[in-house]
């Protein structure tokens, strides 16, 4: 694992967010959590985490849009984004690609797979 990498989780389900946070912290990542989409977007812009774990079914704002707003912005496009979603149709996966997500994982996910993907993306970037 890449030490001290900062990961932001934007997920409205508090239990889900907490479970992922615990898993990531156990693997020595610094974890930030936001349950609201807009606040999550702002936090991403302010704190500039290394990686973002993004749920797409968020109230008030579509997770895909958050991804697009960050990825298509010069200042933030270096941010790695993993979309985590209960929507697993091919159309959803394609949409993830369109908005620039670096990975698309379906819920329920295997934590080993999530960790492996995070490592893979962080290593590729450094």
């Amino acid at each position: 694992m890449v030490n001290n990498a900062k990961i932001l989780i934007i997920e409205d389900d508090k239990d889900m967010a907490n479970a992922i946070k615990m898993r990531l912290e156990a693997n020595n990542y610094e974890v930030l959590v936001e349950n609201d989409g807009m606040e999550g977007l702002n936090r991403a812009r302010n704190e500039k985490p290394d990686l973002l774990i993004l749920d797409v079914m968020l109230p008030k704002i579509d997770g895909f849009n958050i991804c697009r707003m960050l990825k298509f912005d010069e200042k933030y496009k270096k941010l790695l984004v993993i979309i985590l979603s209960a929507k697993v149709q091919q159309t959803d996966i394609d949409r993830g690609g369109e908005v620039g997500a670096d990975a698309y994982m379906a819920k329920p996910f295997k934590s080993e797979e999530l960790l492996a993907k995070i490592e893979e993306l962080l290593h590729a970037r450094h």
């Binding site: 389900d13 239990d15 889900m16 479970a19 992922i20 615990m22 898993r23 156990a26 209960a86 379906a106 819920k107 329920p108 996910f109 934590s111």
Partner: peptide, 18 residues
Amino acid sequence: RTPLSVIRENVALIKDGI
């Protein structure tokens, strides 16, 4: 899916000794 995810993760966290 989401509640299932939460349950799985929670169980995994306890199981893995975290």
